[in-house]
Amino acid sequence: MKKGWLKILIASPKKYEYLLFDIDNTIMDFTAGEKTALFLTMEEFGISLAQTDYQKYLAVNKAAWSRFEAGELDSIDVQRVRFEDFAAHLGRDVAQATDMNARYVENLGEQAILFDGAAELLERLSRRYQLAIATNGLSLVQRARLAKAGILPLFRGVFISQEMRVPKPDKAYFELIFAFFGDEAREKYLMIGDSLSADIQGGINAGIDTCWYRPAGEALPADIAPTYTIDGYAELLALLLPG
């Protein structure tokens, strides 16, 4: 029996009304989309990337978004900093960073790669719960991907940090969601996502239950405690649609 199943089976049943879903690497394969968009963008600039270059981009992008989550950068700064750092790594004029980022954002918006079973999961859950998107990221990218994937009608609300001007995991981010639904009862909400720093810590900061989605089976650090830990969609359905 998987560890995720064990935690669900021993968990006390709760009556949720609102399910808040992260997008990237929770319902969409951001890793694959990001790689495709980056390589395509660099080809447009006449740059052939090596695997080491790709790993460098991942590192600078992660660092920039970590600073965003900490409130040190806004979403505009993230876009500038990551491609300035990456252009410097490639030995290119950092003045190209703005154009590189613009093309990358457009290309990334085309990468609406749903994980197998994600659409069915959301459709089934939408019959019982009110669903919402709760995502860090850029509005242009996230809205384009959601529209292209054809799943927007399943969600009552779409909450993107760039539009809200506050990052997940900030408590204020979730308070805006509570205000949208007109319901401050935190026991009615469940945050579902793959990021411990944004999704799980954000839910904890806001005082709501959390569900850590970890299909790769990563070990849980000792300093954070999701309400639930799952390894796949079947476990989430068992939790939320039992019987």
Rank of each mutant, 00 (worst) to 15 (best):
K2L: 12
K3C: 04
G4T: 11
W5S: 10
K7W: 14
I8K: 08
L9C: 12
L9Q: 14
L9I: 11
I10N: 04
P13T: 07
Y16H: 15
Y18T: 05
L20D: 06
D22I: 14
N25G: 05
N25V: 10
N25S: 10
M28Y: 00
M28G: 07
D29R: 02
D29Y: 06
F30G: 08
L38N: 03
F39H: 10
M42S: 02
M42I: 05
M42Y: 00
G46S: 04
I47N: 02
Q51L: 13
D53W: 01
D53S: 14
Q55T: 10
Y57A: 08
L58T: 11
A59V: 07
V60P: 09
K62F: 06
K62I: 07
A64W: 08
W65S: 03
W65E: 01
R67N: 09
F68N: 00
E69K: 00
E72D: 11
V78D: 01
V78S: 07
E84W: 11
F86L: 12
A87G: 08
H89F: 13
H89E: 12
G91I: 09
V94C: 13
V94H: 10
A97E: 03
M100D: 01
N101V: 02
N101G: 06
R103F: 04
V105I: 15
L108S: 11
Q111C: 13
Q111W: 04
A112P: 13
F115N: 13
F115S: 09
D116W: 02
D116N: 11
A118Q: 09
L121E: 12
L125H: 08
S126K: 13
R127C: 15
Y129N: 13
L131G: 11
A134V: 12
T135A: 10
N136D: 01
S139H: 02
S139Q: 01
L140I: 06
Q142V: 01
A144F: 03
A144C: 04
R145F: 05
R145T: 10
L146G: 01
A147M: 00
K148G: 02
L154H: 13
L154A: 14
F155S: 10
F155T: 12
R156K: 11
F159A: 00
I160W: 03
S161Y: 04
E163Q: 12
E163W: 12
M164C: 01
R165Q: 15
V166T: 15
A172L: 07
A172C: 04
Y173L: 01
L176S: 02
L176H: 06
I177T: 04
G182F: 09
G182A: 06
E184H: 07
E184G: 00
E184V: 05
A185K: 13
A185F: 00
Y189C: 06
L190W: 06
M191K: 11
L196Y: 03
G202D: 04
G202Y: 08
G202R: 09
G203C: 10
G203L: 02
I204L: 14
I204Y: 04
I204K: 13
N205C: 02
G207I: 12
G207K: 01
T210L: 07
T210A: 07
T210K: 10
C211T: 03
C211N: 03
W212M: 01
W212K: 03
W212A: 03
Y213W: 09
Y213Q: 00
Y213S: 00
P215M: 15
G217E: 11
L220V: 14
L220F: 04
D223Y: 08
A225D: 10
A225N: 14
Y228V: 09
A234L: 13
L237V: 09
P242A: 15
P242L: 12
P242R: 12
